[in-house]
Structures are given as structure tokens and as C-alpha cells.
Nucleic acid binder design. Structure first.
Lengths: 145, 145
DNA sequence: CCAATTTAGTTCGTGGGCGAACCGATGTCA
DNA sequence: TGACATCGGTTCGCCCACGAACTAAATTGG
């Protein structure tokens, strides 16, 4: 967050923090060990894959720098959620894939996403939700130029 | 950010990151040294004060844990933006206040806030902005319960 | 009045995130 | 083919943030 403590930027920063806190609580409540909100995007990406993918593909998908992804993947591996292995064709490349234990996170993952969304929106109507998301899209675009 | 990579939570996380990036760029462009987005809330609070305040007051205002604030204040002090001094009445208490150099940040601070807001909102109309802020208020509240 | 508790602040260890430097391996191209 | 650039990935140093443990100084209450 930052300069704009009172304004919309501060609001957005606080919402993000609370959303993360909620995710952490949910993970804890479900007894999921070693997973933190930061692992979400990597997990989400890998859950969508049927086959092993190069780490590079993860980097491009998650919007984190490669040094960050290296560490995230190491952590997930340490906890047994994924495994790494070198490519035969290109010795620079390392593939990753979820283990069975990693795959099993899918259910929690989806349920937590659902819980988060409904807590976040509360009783907001469908039309308001759509308008809100569209406005946020616009804002994201405004900040990307 | 988290589980909900595709959904609204991911959107919000990305907006926050982009807002922070914009602030960093602005600070750099203005040649402000040693200040980062994380210092914003502390600075904002201190700029509002006429007299020295106990660190405790800073902690309560910025929504960060006291160990975090200790470090932030140390950094701002190291760069000469504020000074610390012990209380006479209560030896446990340390006061902080901005130095002249710190006070001089006010202008940049306000201008960057303004720049951020207009970049963020873009050409969104006043009524939409208000509705958006109200919805975000609602969301923040939903997540706080 | 003094022991127990609370309070303000710091320190330490852990983890996310970044950029820069680095390492091998592969590509390029003269 | 051999020097150079590029590429995938890791390591390192730094900053933010947290909680737990710690210190010194009040405050409380028996």
C-alpha cells in the first residue's frame, strides 16, 4: 500500500491483507501443512497441467520473478507436494509436476477459493459484482500502461 | 496472491502491486532516496502530527505490528527523515518526530498520492468512483467480521 | 512496600519478494 | 569450429512483515 493511506489504494491493500489472512486461517483449519497464500498461484497453475512443465512455464504464469519461483518450488518440493526432474533434450531445463499429495490439494484449493469469494462479496448482488469486477479490470489496465 | 488467481482476489492483489510499483517509480523519478511504499503510512501519520508522538501511537495508526514499526522507524531515522528521543515522564516511551528533511517530503507525498489516484481511476466518472469505494468498504467489512 | 503483571520497545528467526551476479548448457554466426 | 551471446535456473544480499522472546520500566494489588 503506501502513500494513499486513506484513499482507495489503502483500501485495496487492506482487503488483500485480509483475504490472505482468511486463506491462512482456512489452510490451518483444514490442517494443510506447508502451504501459504504465496503458493497459491503456483499450485493453481500446476493443478491445471496434465503433464510436467518446465519451471520457466511456471515463472511466466505466476507473475513472479524466477528467483522467487525457484524458492517457492523448493518449498513445495520440501513438503512433498511436487517433484522436479531434469529434461533429457535440454540440460538447462528442469520440469516440475505435482505429486499425488499435491494433486490432493485440489479440493481444498477450490473450496477455499469459494469460501473466500463468498465471504468477500457477502450479500452483494450479481449485477454489482459484475460491475465491480469490470471496474477493477479497468483499474488494473489503467495502472498497466 | 493466493488461491483465487483468476478471481477478484487476484485482481486486487495485482492492482496493489501495480500501485506500489507506480509509487516506487515516482519516488525514484523525484530523486527521493531511502523512501519506499512501505514507509508511506508511517510518513502520512507523522506528517499529520504537529508534535512528537510515542512510537506506540505510530503502531496503532499504521496497522503494522510493533516489531515492523521499530524497523521502519530505524530506516527513516537512518536516512535522516525523523529523529527519536526518550520521554522524561515515562522511561519506557520513545518519541519520534519528523526532521525538516522529513517535513519536506510532504509535497512529494501529496503529489504522488494525487498522481496515483488519477492514474488508477483514469476516466472513471465521479459516481462510479463513489460506488466503487463504497463497495470496497463493504468488502473490507465483510472480511473483517 | 514489594511481588506479580503489564507496558513500550527491541531483537531474533522465518518467510515472501526482488534484482544482480553467477553457472552450465545451448544457440549463433563469422 | 570457436568465441560470444542467450537461456534456464540457482544463489546471494536486501527489504518488508510477522510472531515470539526478551529487557527495562511502570503499574497494580495484596
Amino acid at each position: 500500500m503506501a502513500v494513499d493511506t486513506g484513499g482507495i489504494a489503502g483500501q485495496i491493500a487492506r482487503i488483500r491483507e485480509k483475504a490472505n489472512a482468511l486463506i491462512e486461517e482456512e489452510l490451518k483449519a483444514r490442517g494443510v501443512k506447508g502451504i501459504l497464500p504465496a503458493h497459491g498461484p503456483v499450485l493453481a497453475f500446476l493443478l491445471r497441467q496434465k503433464d510436467p512443465v518446465p519451471i520457466k512455464a511456471v515463472v511466466e504464469s505466476v507473475g513472479r520473478v524466477k528467483s522467487t519461483v525457484t524458492v517457492t518450488i523448493a518449498t513445495l518440493q520440501k513438503h512433498g507436494y511436487l517433484r522436479k526432474f531434469p529434461s533429457d533434450e535440454d540440460a538447462r531445463v528442469t520440469y516440475v509436476e505435482l505429486t499425488a499429495k499435491g494433486r490432493r490439494l485440489q479440493k481444498d484449493f477450490e473450496e477455499i477459493s469459494q469460501t473466500l469469494r463468498s465471504r468477500l462479496y457477502g450479500d452483494m448482488g450479481e449485477r454489482d459484482r459484475e460491475r465491480l469486477v469490470r471496474q477493477l479490470d479497468k483499474i488494473e489496465e489503467n495502472l498497466s500502461e
